[in-house]
Structures are given as structure tokens and as C-alpha cells.
Amino acid sequence: MDKVLKIEQAAALVTDGSILALGGLSMNSSPMAFVRELIRQGKKNLTLVAIVNGMAVDWLVAADCVRRVISGLVSFEGMGLAPNFRHAVESGVVTLEEYSEYLLIARLRAAATNLPFIPTKAGLGTDVIGLHPETTRLETDPVTGEAYVACTPLPVDVAIVHAHAADVLGNVRVDPKLLWMDNEIVNAAAKTIVTVETIVPHSSFIAEPHRTTWPRFITDAVAEVPWGAYPTSCFPKYGHDKAFFSAYSKAARNPECFRTFWDSRLAGPDTHAAFLQANGGAATVNRIRRPTT
């Protein structure tokens, strides 16, 4: 079965109100082209699962696509807090369901493996455990008397990840095997949509099966979007665009500036290629491209 879709078609698979898990970590390998398309299609009431994230969550929150965020951390690292996310949580427009990184991983693993809970020592003695006693339960092992946290399943409707290559059948290669926590969300998800830098011949997967990350029965749709993680990175092809992060943060200080930035450089352009063009085009691509070794 051919799983290749245009990005517009792939984004249309996401229905309003669904639980959407975003791949990548912080400034790395987020499915930004897909996120932009969700915004353009005006999705509503999404619940985002984003273990460690920044720009993707901030965009979707700014576009009013989000009702709830399930996360361990949302920021622009050294470039500061994610401005729209911060304001939306402070004002109560968006509900934050907060865990630590590993508690989230454990919850996703419980969902992926059909277990009632996964035990861990992560979070013991912190206030994080008290936030959601229904999903991260403090328990004691009846045999050894040891304390642990029981993490209940976190089912995901759709996982969306960005990868390096796929064939038309939906076999996917993350290459090198930098999976961040993408495997956790993919395994917990009912549906997985993958955007890739390039579609390659099926024969290349047969030639090097040891480089395959997810086989076709794990994936539901594939969309080819070169530079599809921009402005986050896609190692080793390109790094994140520091200039975009800075300009975005600066614009967000003033609503009028942000509106202009949003229309001209973010949501306005109708394709990912046009979006790249609006952000410097070839000059930007040359700046973020990593030297090939």
C-alpha cells in the first residue's frame, strides 16, 4: 500500500480534539512543517503530548489550536521561555498537565505495552508526584517495602515525527539512529504520521535493513518535506536556526510585531518551501546546513 500523502492530506488525518504527540526534543527534529500545516488548517482543542519541546508547542498555542499540553518542559533553552505557551498557561487558556521526562516515558511505555502501570523511582520525594496522583501513583511494593511511582498508560491518538528517509510503503529510516524520544510516542500511538527529508527507493531498505527504524506496519502516512524540521534541526543535515528563534522571541514582546511576524514569516506562506523563502531562502539554508564530512 502506498502511504505517501501530500502534507496537506496528512495533516487532514488529525481531527479536532485528538491527542497528538509531537516528536523531537527541544530544538531538535520537531515536525515543524506538519505543525505549520495544522495551524493553517485551523485545528482546534488538541491535546499535545510533547516530552521536551519549545517552538512547536508555542506555535500551536499561539494559533489557538490547543486546549491541553502534557509535557515535562517547554522552553527555548538559553533563548528564554516560550512566550505564547507561558502566557497561555499563566492566564489559564491552556491547561498544562505536567510530569517529569521519565514519568512521561513510563506512562507512554505502559500504553505501548498494554500494562496497567510501569513502576519507577523517578519523581520520588518531589512535588511532581502530587500533581497527578491518578496517573502517577505513589505505591509501596508489598514484598520488599520499597517505594515506587506507578505510571498509568498515556494513550496517544496520533504521533507525528520527522525522519530522514522513507519508502512509499512507509518503511522509515531515522539515520543516524537519533531517536530522541520518538520511539516512545510512536509505540504508544494508534496512528503514526512521518514527515521525511526524502523518499528513497524501496530497494535501499532491502539493501540495508539494519538501518531501518520503523517498518511499514508501524506507520500510517508519509509526507516528503525537505527541511521539514526547520527552524529546528535535523542532524546531521542541518542545525536549528538561531536567527529565527531570536526574531520570534523578539517579535513576541509586542502583539503588533508578533502579528506581522506571524503573517509574513510563519503562518502566511502557503507551502513549506514558501515558508523557507520567507525566512531567508537559500541564504538561510546555507547558514544552517552542516558541513558534510
Binding site: V52, S71, G72, L73, V74, S75, L81, A82, F85, R86, V89, E90, L96, E98, S100, E101, Y102, L103, T120, A122, G123, T126, V128, I129
Partner: peptide
């Protein structure tokens, strides 16, 4: 609203 603990609790 700070970034969040991330892996601090873990």
C-alpha cells in the same frame, strides 16, 4: 510559569 522540571524529578 517556568520551563518545567524536564528530567529534574527523574
Amino acid at each position: 510559569r517556568l520551563p518545567g522540571g524536564g528530567g529534574m524529578a527523574d
